[in-house]
């Protein structure tokens, strides 16, 4: 019983603890690198860009072929 009461009192401190974390400057994506699988998103961006570049190279080479025909 005593244990439960102390647990209850401690839980009242939770908002203060939560508040204490907010004070440190403007909110940034602090957990950006630690979790949330953001690396997956970055690799997706990279893959999309590499595909686009590959397509541009393909068009470029095709154009070169056409130029050499002349």
């Amino acid at each position: 019983m005593k244990f439960k009461l102390s647990f209850f009192l401690m839980s009242l401190l939770m908002p203060i603890l939560a508040k204490a974390q907010e004070v440190n400057g403007p909110e940034m994506a602090d957990t950006f690198r630690s979790n949330g699988k953001i690396y997956v998103v970055i690799s997706v961006i990279a893959i999309v860009f590499v595909c686009l570049i590959g397509y541009l190279i393909y068009i470029d080479l095709k154009l070169k072929k056409l130029e050499n025909k002349k």
Binding site: P26, E27, M28, A29, I42, I45, F49
Partner: peptide, 16 residues
């Protein structure tokens, strides 16, 4: 594209 996302940036209000 990669390091623009991962690199450190100044922490500013509104801009975040």
């Amino acid at each position: 594209l990669i390091w623009g996302m991962l690199g450190p940036v100044p922490q500013l209000d509104i801009l975040n």
